[in-house]
Simulated assay, not measured.
Amino acid sequence: MNRIQQAAANWRKAGLENDFVFSKVMTDPEICLEVIQSILPGLAIKSIKPPRAQEEINPSNDAKGVRFDVYTTDDANNHYDIEMQVAESPNLFKRVRYYQSLNAFASYERGENYNYAHNSYVIFICCFDPMGLGRQYYSVNKRLNQDPAFLVWDGATDVYLNVTSERHEVPAKLQTFLDQIAGRSGGQEDAFGLKLRQKITEVKHNKKWRADFMRMSLMEMDHQYELDQAEIKGRNQGIENDRLSLINGLLKQGQSEDEIIHFLTTVLNLSDEQARAYYHKATTKD
């Protein structure tokens, strides 16, 4: 299968768990609003501004920039960043902290008192259990270390959803959403599930979005190939350095060329040609 065929196959199998498809589906204002309402029912959100996909945030020229999968604000001007996270990452929590800082950055308007800063919500939808506790829903706010029951409310909330959990701890609409991502039958037969599937079908039949996805996939393949080649080169260089160091060590022990060649061919299973090439390199001055 060539690269173009692989990209086409990736598009055919891409579902809501794919961040490209996810972003396109979530730019539907009705769907995005229903998802946020089901994740944060206590906010009583009435409306949101049109969600923006792949929102680029660059706080300054020398700071690390990011792309939010989906970004929007609600009728109370609360700020929302919603991310699809497929692969586990050891730096997830620090990444969320940075995303939260950038999301909160937009909540502070120049010249305004800090009291008027709007609330900021960063929501990560994870295809794994980010906390390892088996729950579907985790929310994080600041707590006082000396009294964990004391909430230090600074307006920032992190939410993690565990797609893999089947505990059914969340509202029905959110359960349907998670089931759709996971490919479970669950509650996908309800009205919201039908709306999600119709939107996914609409996305997958959009020729422009298919072309965009294909182009991105090919770029990712090229980038991965370059990374793989660099890794192979680095690994080979490491092997070569180890073998040259070994030869130098044997030379210091007083072993002859024939003895070293014999060692390399019998112990390291190198060919005679490879062994002599390594010996020549180790004994030749630059």
Rank of each mutant, 00 (worst) to 15 (best):
Q136L: 06
F150L: 10
T157Q: 08
T176C: 15
K207D: 13
D212P: 00
R143T: 11
S165D: 04
N141G: 09
H223I: 11
R215S: 13
T201S: 13
E189D: 11
W209S: 00
F192A: 02
W209A: 01
R210K: 15
V203F: 04
D179G: 07
G186Q: 01
Y138M: 07
V140N: 05
K173F: 03
Y225C: 12
V203P: 02
E202A: 14
F177M: 05
N141F: 08
K208Q: 14
L178T: 02
R210S: 08
H205Y: 08
G134Q: 08
P148I: 11
R143D: 04
W153C: 06
A156H: 04
R215H: 14
P148F: 09
H223R: 15
L174K: 06
I181M: 03
N206P: 00
A211L: 15
L218Q: 04
Q136K: 10
L161Q: 03
V170H: 00
G134R: 09
M221A: 11
D154A: 07
T157D: 01
I200E: 00
V140H: 06
Q175L: 04
F177I: 06
K142H: 09
R215E: 14
Q180S: 14
D212G: 03
Y225N: 15
S217L: 05
Q224V: 04
K195E: 07
L133W: 10
D179R: 03
Q198V: 03
R197I: 00
L133F: 12
I200T: 05
F177P: 02
D154R: 07
F192T: 02
L174T: 09
L218V: 10
R143N: 09
I181D: 01
D212E: 15
N206D: 15
D179E: 08
S139P: 00
D179T: 05
R135V: 10
K173V: 14
K173H: 09
L196Q: 03
V170T: 13
T157S: 07
M221T: 01
T164G: 07
V140W: 05
